[in-house]
Amino acid sequence: MLLTKMRYLNPYIAGVGLGLFLLAAFVFSGQGLGGSGAIMRTVVGGVKIFSQQHVDNNIYMVNYGGGKLNPLDSWLVFEVVGVFVGGLLSGILSGRFKAETNHGPRINRRKRLILSFLGGSLFGFGARYARGCTSGVALSGGATLAVGSWVTMFAIFFSAYALAYFLRKVWL
């Protein structure tokens, strides 16, 4: 049973709510929030099933799953499970829990899914170089005033805005 579709929360109120949970993460665990770290850890977990040796020989992956390390044994993984549950709760409560594909009016579903996959790959690739995504770097790093995080944050928005014009057919 779904509730009637509700409006989104005022962005400033949502922002304060988000900020308080971010603060709670620092206060309780000394950790920022993250999104892509858990995905990376799942990937390493997958690679580990196929070849432990490959993980051990990769200077990057070895930090997550080298030897007896369990890549999923991490604060961020449990946090992301919570994000999933929280999103689910909110979606059900506000009547937005519905299987659908959101796409711009001028492209079809298939094209949208291809672009989504491509965009996701690019995002994931970049996140590994910037050492985190919008949650881990821009949000958490922004709040702790880390220099590199602010630089990365501006880089993200710079390139997204710069490219937006050329992709207007996808979204508008």
Binding site: Y8, A14, F21, L89, S90
Partner: peptide
């Protein structure tokens, strides 16, 4: 904390 994070992300 993740639940709160996810909730407000979705609400936003």
């Amino acid at each position: 904390i993740g639940i709160g994070f996810g909730f407000f992300l979705e609400q936003g």
